[in-house]
Structures are given as C-alpha cells and as structure tokens.
Write a protein that binds this DNA or RNA. Structure first.
Lengths: 317, 317
DNA sequence: CACCTTATGCTCAAGTTGAGCAAAATGGCA
DNA sequence: TGCCATTTTGCTCAACTTGAGCATAAGGTG
C-alpha cells in the first residue's frame, strides 16, 4: 500500500509599523501559537494560493493582498507529527508549502483566535535596531560554541558556521541569514521545537534568549519568510505593500528598519529614495511628528510599469 | 472520498561551457524531451532531495552535486494530465516540486535516454550574446502584440507586460525575467504546450522562433530555473559550481555570459573579480587560447567561509 | 523668544563603474 | 627574422554612487 500524502498550506502574513514587524499568528487552546494553516484540498482548491487564502480568511478573518510562495518543506523528522493537527488520515506523509503575504495594516482580528505578534518574540536575536542584542554574545554564542566543541570532528565546521551566521569574531551580521541562524539553534538542540521533535538534549541557555517556540515547523517557516523578505526588500519595491497610502519618509524608513532589524542612515536613505523615483511628494504635510512638519509621499505604482525598478537601498546607519 | 495527491519531482540539471548553457534532458520514444523526473515516494524517500537524486541517477546515470529547491507547481489547468506519465493512481492531483542542480562537467550519459541540450533550443529568444535576436522583433513581438490587441479591456495591461518582459520600446532587457516571458507566450497561446493543454488557438508565429516544447510543464520549470540561476549568479558565488577545478578568466567570463545570455565587458569583469577575491591565480599558464597565454585560476573555496561573499559582477559589454 | 525636535538641503572625500587605450606575450606566416 | 593576428593584462579618466557629517528650515513648548 502506498503511503498517502497530505499537503499543508501555511502563511506568514506580515505587517509592520514604526515600532515593529508583525506576523499574524493563531492561538491554540494551550496558549501555543502557530501560523494560519490548513490542508490543501486537491478536489476543492484549484491552486495553492486560493486554498491558502481560504484558510487564512477562515482562521483570522483576514484577506491577504500580496502573496508569494516561499518554500516547500518535506523532510521527515524535522516536523511534528502535524498530520493530526490537520486531521489528515493518520499515517499520511505531510508536506507543507509555505507562503509569504504582506499587508499595509493590522486589520482587526479580535473576533478570531489570532494575534499580530512582533516577530522578535520568536527571534529576539534578530533585532539590531538598537545595536547588537546582548543575548547573542552572552547567552546564545556560549551555548552554541559549547555544542560546537562537543562535535568531535565536526567541531571546526560548526564553529565556522556559527561565526558566519551570528557575526561572531568580526564577521559581519547579515540580516538575510535568519533561517541559517534558526537552523543552527535547532540542530544544537537549543530550540524547544528540536527537543520536542524527539531530538537531542538541549544545552542549557536561558529560555528568554531563545525566543518563543511555535507549533510544528512554523517557526522555521517564519524564519524563511523573514530572510526572504529582508532580501527582497532590497531588489524589489515590496516595502510599499506594507505601507499605507500616504506616509512620511521617516515612516518608510522605520518600516524598513523594522523588517531588516537594522538602523539606516537617514539622509542617505532619503537621497537614494529620491534617485529611485519610487515615491512622489504630495505637497501635503503632517505635523504629527513633533518637529518640523514632514511631507507626505505616496508610492508611484506606475514605477512598476517601468521595467528597471529596484527595491530600496539600505545604507547602514 | 478524498482525491489522492501525487508529488512529482523534476530536476533542471545545468552545465555550461564557453559555447552554451546546457540542461540535462530525457528523451522519450516519440522524440519529445523532458526533464529528469519521477514520483516522490512518501514511504521510501526521507527528503525530497534524496528522492530527486534517486530519480536523476536512475534516468540519466548522473550524480548531481549542488542542488536547490526552485518552486512547487500545483495549479490545475497549467499542466498536462501528467499523472499517467508517472503512473500515479489515475484521478490523483499532481503537484510538482522543481529543483535546480549545477555541475561542472557534462558527464557521459550516452548509456541513457538522456541528452545535454543547449537550453536556447527551448528559449531561442533568451540568447543575447551576439546582440538581441531578430526573432524577438520580427516574429515574437508582432504575434504577442496582436494577441494583446485582441484583449479588449486588457489590451493596455497586456501591452505593458509585453513591453517590460521583452524589452520593447526602449525598455531594458532584463535577463532574469525568463519565466515572465515564457508565461506570456503561454498565455498568448504561442507556446505549443498551451494549445496542447486544451488552451486557446494559437496566434500564428513561425515555430522556430517559439522554441521546442517539452512534455508536461517542464519548460515552465526550466524557465524558472534559468531565471533563478541568472539572478543568483550575481549575489552568490554559484558560477563556480559550473567550472572545472582550473580555468582561465576568459573561460569564467564565457560561462557567465552563456548563463546570462548577455555579453560582458572584459576588463571590468576582470577588475571586479580581482576585487572580489573569489579566485586566485595559480601561477600556471595555458596557451590553448591562441594568443598570449592565460593564467589559470581556481575558486577560493575558503571565500565561502568569509561571510560577505557576493556573486560575480556582470558589467554589460 | 530661546530652545527642543524633526525635516530637509548641501558638501566633500572615497570608492565604484563604464569605457577605452596601450603594452606584453604568444603562434603563424611571409 | 620580422611583421601580424590574437589574446592577456595593465592603466587611465570621467561619471556616478556611497558614507558621513554639517547647516539650515519649520514646526511646537515653556
């Protein structure tokens, strides 16, 4: 007999404001959180994307706008026996297709068991807007390096991976490497998911440094989404999917910073936006900011019709 | 009863030399070609990648090195009823996971029904190394534009898409947009696959301008692979997966040009390689080139351990 | 009205890119 | 042997981009 296959669809729905980047999360009875997800119905869903939209709507009341496929996860042993969660035939092999969605506002989802969560709750080491978080050097790195040392002949390779991923030892911090960082923590048994999934004993490290877990492999999918978005924001004008119709340049910069987890150089950010011709001033001003009133801008959607469109530059501040 | 799901795995295995980029293709009895592919076995394959490697080995005798997941195709109505091809239970919904693999040499596959094919056979409009191919402006654009005109209220939108994708009307040619170009041709009914798949009547255009079709949705997967590789070559040092151990800088340039379908500026290409520190001279020289002997270089694999590694610059020639 | 805050304008040095010229090192051929 | 074709390799120069910082503008507040 052939093992049946079940396809799960999971969505990372992202919003952001000047304070933080958010992911839409569903809340289970026991307080655990996960991503909006459900089974792909081969008879009822013409495409993955349509199926995904159905599930997100059903679980969060939310209608996603921009959506793109992220990755398809099919490895055995990396996920929970999630099939039960999705009421798939037991014994089925579950594979899951992750999607990334972007939205300009955190719509009201209070009627559902869903919450907008600052994604740094799941990845506290990813927020470098106020400088490199202490937990990296004080909690994460020591635990990881002791795991590396225990690696026998793999010790050197592990050391190198850790240094590159977490920017130790004068290596630069590369914000796109979100997934690599999560995978190392997982392999090292530092992510609660790893031990839960029947993995190794955890090296000790303070729980608050390791972020909140999610059900199944959802934190892995979230990490994938963050990495992809951080990369894409630089070469495609996708930030604007996260912005309201009108915004100030500082609003825009704060959102980019929230996504990247990295501060930017203000004047240079503005100059490059100027050159990019991605935005136009509206001649309207807002004094909501406390200082000199700022001009409101809008995204020039026409720019998308102009071929050469790039994303926003991200001059380090 | 639940419709069963079958997962297909398809591989785009790429090699390249100074003359052309190649994809590994399997040849069917009727002369049609396709990609190495087969069904994912949920009981026997621990991961997609392992399953894929099994199939590629079985069908081509070839052992792929570098492999990455491309995309998962699940839309109804965009593919052949391929299930039969893969002897899936009839009535099953087929979804297919595409992979990209890179290899430094075209190994001997003569014992199998497999061939290394210059991928421009499938996409003749993609090769701009000797300048923009005439077929774009003489055959493809006219046919597409007449399709656009027939689009009623969609006519303007279609025009814009075509101009951007094919670089008409002074728009730049952007080599990564391989998939967009193929999809437009498909939608316009110009790809033989489209009419075969029960689609619309084809606008007329000379067959040799439209490229050779492939079975099922394999040409779409190939287009996805080309676009991805063309992008990635610029920001990750993946070209070197296509190079032999030792090579001259011109060899390297020719391979990059073959992949991009675009000529590069020689001196500037060298200068940027120099700065990148991705290669080191070996002090050995080859006079295989006819002129002054060229130094042999190798890829500094250590560079991968250095965090900031980018791909190769591609200064337009 | 001084002063705090934020927006916006401007400058300057350093680095990168695009484009081309010139010299060097080989083989082939008169 | 000497000239030529061919290719590698070195060098230059202008245009542009980036990183960094200073200066000024335009609001609100005590």
């Amino acid at each position: 007999m052939m093992t049946p296959i079940a396809v799960g669809l999971s969505a990372v729905i992202v919003a952001a404001d000047a304070n933080a980047p958010y992911a839409l999360a569903t809340r289970l009875a026991d307080g655990a959180t996960g991503l909006p997800h459900g089974r792909f119905d081969p008879a009822g869903h013409r495409t993955f994307e349509l199926g995904l939209r159905d599930w997100v709507r059903a679980q969060t009341g939310f209608e996603p706008g921009y959506v793109e496929q992220l990755y398809t996860f099919g490895d055995l042993g990396r996920e929970l026996p999630q099939a039960e969660l999705d009421d798939a035939p037991s014994g089925a092999r579950l594979i899951s297709v992750g999607y990334l969605g972007l939205t300009p506002e955190r719509t009201d989802i209070s009627a559902f068991d869903a919450v907008w969560r600052d994604w740094h709750r799941y990845f506290p080491w990813e927020d470098h807007r106020k400088g490199r978080p202490d937990i990296i050097d004080h909690a994460i790195a020591p635990a990881l390096l002791s795991w590396a040392d225990a690696g026998g002949k793999n010790a050197t390779a592990r050391h190198a991976r850790i240094q590159i991923a977490f920017g130790l030892d004068n290596q630069p911090w590369i914000e796109e490497r979100t997934l690599e960082r999560y995978e190392i923590l997982y392999e090292a048994g530092l992510a609660p998911e790893a031990t839960r999934d029947g993995g190794r004993k955890s090296v000790k490290a303070p729980a608050e440094a390791l972020g909140e877990p999610m059900i199944s492999d959802h934190r892995r999918i979230l990490a994938t989404a963050i990495g992809r978005l951080r990369g894409k924001i630089k070469y495609r004008p996708v930030v604007f999917e996260l912005m309201p119709e009108k915004f100030t340049l500082l609003d825009l910069q704060k959102v980019v910073e929230a996504i990247l987890g990295q501060p930017l150089h203000k004047q240079n950010f503005r100059r490059s936006l100027d050159r990019s011709e991605l935005v136009v001033g509206l001649g309207q001003f807002t004094q909501a900011t406390g200082g000199r009133p700022a001009e409101l801008f809008r995204f020039r959607r026409e720019a998308l019709r102009e071929g050469h469109v790039s994303g926003v530059q991200t001059p380090r501040g």
